[in-house]
Simulated assay, not measured.
Amino acid sequence: MDANKHAQTMLAVLIDADNTQASITDGLLSEVAKYGVASVKRIYGDWTTPSLTGWKSVLLEHSIQPIQQFRYTVGKNATDSAMIIDAMDLLYTRRFDGFCLVSSDSDFTRLASRIREEGLLVYGFGERKTPKAFVSACDKFIYVEVLRFEEDTEQAAKPKTANELKGDTKLVALLRSAAEAASDESGWAHLRAVGSSIAKQAPEFDPRNYGYSKLRELAMATKLFDIEERPHGDGHSRSIYIRDKRKKPQK
């Protein structure tokens, strides 16, 4: 058991209650579980205010520790300072492999950068209105809109058509440049390497933003790439490779 514990990625999840809705909690924690174990779950806010009432039952259900922070001045967000101080205290314990910062507030941009300077991973979670500076400061940024339950059809993103995807010049350029960076001499690129290249260029990239659950599905939907499955040496599993159709050898 000790070996498994050390092999796990330990994460500290810090939530800014003033800038996060309680309705995304289930999706948030499910997403965090993909990256590691949430060994610390804390949420910051002034719990004497009526605006945070919706969080109370959620905190009990998910064992999230509420941290009280009174508002000293109207219009000023004291929650940010408390969360930043706590994050630095946790950082210096050296017990964590990464942090999950849940907020749409640009005030956490420097915190994200500082944590990464220590060699730890930073996963950001926020609404689409989150300033680009904070998004770029994270290793990966997930828009909370894609974390709604699938049965909430009004919130779920509908898959975009090939024409819509091709019309997104930023997306097309991102996919093609990532495929080019990961490709071999024949133009084929392992899909996992393509995904890694994309993450370095655009922390906010997520196939779910376009209505697709996987990068492979998104790549296929664009109709810009050839897709090929290749067996591993063990013969039991297969790898996915893609190639820009513009690089297809001419007969």
Rank of each mutant, 00 (worst) to 15 (best):
A7R: 13
Q8P: 00
M10G: 12
M10R: 13
L11H: 08
A12V: 06
L14D: 00
A17W: 01
D18N: 07
N19I: 05
T20F: 09
T20M: 12
Q21A: 14
S23G: 10
T25W: 03
D26V: 03
L28E: 03
A33W: 03
K34A: 05
V37G: 03
V37A: 14
A38H: 00
A38W: 04
S39I: 09
Y44G: 02
D46S: 08
T48E: 11
L52Q: 00
L52V: 01
T53Y: 02
W55F: 05
L59N: 07
L59E: 10
I64K: 00
P66T: 00
I67L: 04
Q68S: 02
Q69R: 01
Y72A: 06
V74I: 08
G75F: 10
T79L: 14
T79Q: 06
D80R: 10
A82F: 01
I84C: 09
A87F: 05
L90Q: 04
L91I: 04
V102C: 09
S106G: 14
D107Q: 07
L111Y: 05
R114D: 07
R114W: 03
I115R: 07
R116D: 13
E117N: 12
E118D: 15
L120T: 02
L121F: 09
Y123Q: 14
Y123N: 10
Y123I: 15
R128N: 09
K132H: 02
A133W: 01
A133G: 02
A133V: 01
S136Q: 11
C138G: 10
C138P: 00
K140W: 03
F141S: 12
I142F: 05
Y143D: 11
Y143Q: 11
V144L: 07
E145K: 11
V146G: 03
L147A: 11
F149R: 08
E150P: 11
E151P: 01
T153V: 06
A156K: 02
K160A: 06
T161H: 06
L165V: 02
G167E: 05
G167A: 05
G167S: 05
T169L: 13
K170L: 09
L174R: 04
R176Y: 02
E180A: 15
E180V: 11
A181L: 07
A181E: 15
E185G: 11
S186T: 13
G187H: 01
G187A: 08
A189P: 08
R192H: 14
A193M: 15
A193W: 09
G195R: 06
S197E: 15
A199G: 11
G211R: 00
Y212F: 15
R216Q: 13
K223V: 14
D226N: 10
D226F: 12
E228P: 04
E229T: 14
P231D: 12
G233V: 15
G235W: 06
R238W: 08
R238M: 08
S239W: 04
S239F: 10
S239A: 14
K245V: 00
R246L: 12
K248T: 08
K248I: 09
K248G: 12
